[in-house]
């Protein structure tokens, strides 16, 4: 994708990608390749899969996820990411704020002259 065409999605991703990662971990631990594949399945979420790892590293340092190396039935051991209590709380906070935010943006985009939100 060219530089200019990726600018808007790239700006938008910045604030929300980490919450998409936390949401993917809500029900079960997942390993890096699995997480990346699920994010890439939705095209706007990643263009360079490698950029997920610095994000995961920060989420671990901030205590939102924990990691654990587990053996795999085939191939090398995999590093699994698990949602922590702090991560779950952060995800809940985002899930609550997001619809209001989305509606507000929609409001300005579709009806900027409207007198109430």
């Amino acid at each position: 994708m060219n530089e200019a065409g990726d600018r808007v999605p790239s700006q938008l991703r910045k604030g929300v990608l980490e919450y998409c990662v936390l949401a993917l971990l809500r029900d079960e631990p997942k390993y890096g390749v699995e997480l990346v594949a699920e994010l890439s399945a939705v095209s706007v979420m990643t263009t360079s899969q490698g950029t997920i790892y610095p994000l995961l590293s920060r989420l671990r340092r901030e205590g939102l996820v924990a990691t654990e190396l587990r053996d795999s039935p085939s191939g090398p051991p995999r590093r699994y990411y698990t949602l922590t209590g702090v991560g779950r709380a952060s995800l809940a906070e985002f899930a609550q704020a997001w619809p209001l935010f989305r509606d507000a943006v929609d409001h300005f985009l579709t009806d900027p002259q409207g007198d109430s939100a």
């Binding site: 890096g32 390749v33 490698g50 790892y53 191939g75 090398p76 995999r78 590093r79």
Partner: peptide
């Protein structure tokens, strides 16, 4: 992490 990604992706 990157090395592991390439290894795990097989």
């Amino acid at each position: 992490d990157l090395r592991e990604h390439i290894e795990v992706s097989g």
